[in-house]
Structure formats: structure tokens, C-alpha cells
Amino acid sequence: MIKLHYLILCCALFSFACNSEDEDFEPTAACGVNDAISDLPWLKAKYEGLSTGELSEYSYLVQAELEGETVFYMGSCCPFCNWAIILYDCAGNSVEYNATEDELVDGKVIWQPENSVCQF
């Protein structure tokens, strides 16, 4: 009987400890909207392109701060690709700033595909 109690307790603990993918990538308020991917048409178009692209398993979207302003960029963990950070402001305009990931504050992955191979 005691073993059954421990089994039930362990199952309960594991069910609370596991996070679904949706919880890991909750939409965050930015640019005056609650869900940037759904509510900013230009970002939704970028997301749709990344999610259906040939190398989608290496792609992700990041929201961060640069000098107090919200910015977004499309990242890649592709081991055989070269890529550069191209920042976009809330209106979808390219930000003229050669930033490194270290210069971006509060960077948060707001999307990555289910079959992602990227490790964060």
C-alpha cells in the first residue's frame, strides 16, 4: 500500500513539473500588442516563412530590447549556414545597428518549431 502512495505521489509531481511547449513560448506583450506574432502582420509573415521553410528546424524568433526599444530577429542554429542578426522594430523596419547577441537585453525566444534542433 505504501508503494502505491509513493507511485501516486511521483506521478503527481511529474505532472506538475512538466511544461508544455506552449508554456515555454508564451506570447509576451510588446509593441502595444499582447501577442506579437499574431498581432503584428509583418512578424506573422516572417513566422509563416520560417515555419514552412526548408531549414525550419534550425529557425527561431527572438524578442529583445536594444537601447530601451523592443526589437525582433530571426535566429538560426544551422551548423553549416552563415547568418547575421538583422533587427526589426515594432513596425517591421530594419534597424540600422550591427548588434551582437550580447548587446541585446532580455532576449526571449518567442517561437521555434516543434521539430527544432536548437538548444537554449
Rank of each mutant, 00 (worst) to 15 (best):
S94H: 12
P41K: 12
E103S: 02
C90E: 07
L40S: 13
E65W: 00
V117T: 09
N115V: 14
T100K: 03
L50G: 08
L50M: 12
Y97R: 06
N93M: 09
I85E: 06
V105K: 05
G92V: 01
A29H: 05
S76D: 11
T52P: 02
N82E: 15
E26H: 05
K46E: 15
Y47H: 15
K44Y: 11
S76G: 07
S59A: 14
Q112H: 10
F120G: 04
C81I: 08
F16Y: 05
H5M: 11
Q112D: 06
S51F: 08
W42M: 06
S20L: 11
G92E: 09
I110S: 04
L7M: 11
S116A: 10
Y60D: 09
E21D: 13
G92S: 02
I37S: 04
C10Y: 12
V33I: 04
E57K: 15
G68M: 06
I86T: 13
N98F: 06
N82W: 10
Y73R: 03
D102Q: 10
P113V: 14
S76E: 09
K3H: 06
E69N: 05
D89S: 03
G92F: 06
V95A: 05
S51A: 14
F14N: 12
G107W: 05
D102E: 13
I2Y: 13
A30T: 06
T28C: 04
E114Q: 12
V33H: 08
D102C: 01
C78H: 15
V71F: 09
V105Q: 08
L104G: 01
E26F: 00
A12K: 00
S38F: 02
C81W: 02
G68T: 03
C18Q: 09
G107H: 08
A29T: 06
A91E: 14
W111R: 04
A99V: 05
C81D: 11
L104K: 01
G68R: 06
Q63P: 00
E103M: 14
A12S: 12
G53D: 14
A17F: 07
N82D: 12
W83H: 11
I2S: 11
N115L: 11
E48I: 05
S15K: 04
A30L: 03
S15M: 07
A36D: 00
D39N: 13
W83A: 12
V62K: 05
A91P: 00
E69T: 02
D89Q: 02
S116N: 13
C18F: 12
E67K: 09
K44S: 13
N93K: 07
P79G: 09
A91R: 13
C78G: 04
A91F: 03
P27K: 02
I2C: 03
I86N: 11
I110D: 02
K108L: 02
Y58P: 03
